[in-house]
Amino acid sequence: MLGAGGLATITLAPAAMAAAFEDAIAAFTGGAAAGEGGIEISAPEIAENGNVVPVEVSAPGAEEIVVFAPGNPAPAVCNVKFGPLAGSQRLSTRIRLAKTQDVTALARMGDGSFVQVARTVKVTVGGCGG
């Protein structure tokens, strides 16, 4: 079973995966360029179990945050819209990572601009298809 899952991941050409990731970003930003700063990801440097990787994203003043795992078979992780009663623009959850990759988060700020940040997480045992 392990082998079958691994094979499915490998047969997806890296170029196709990168394209899916870029399309997903473009779908969120509408093609606008994303700046830097004002958004943070905290995640472990090394995740021994890719099935449960604690991740926290924070972007003060953001209206919406999306998180991507570009190395996963499906890059989308989650999309969070903050309502009027959100105490801060912060979310903490646990995600699956198939392999070592740059977990990426984008935020749409209150003024309509976009910011982006990425953080490398080394994965010892992959969490997709295992």
């Binding site: 449960v52 996963n72 309502g83 959100a86 997709c128």
Partner: peptide
């Protein structure tokens, strides 16, 4: 009144 509204994908771990 909304606090958060979140869309989850397959990459969220079991027992979210």
């Amino acid at each position: 009144t909304s606090v958060i509204d979140m869309t989850l994908e397959g990459a969220i771990s079991a027992n979210p």
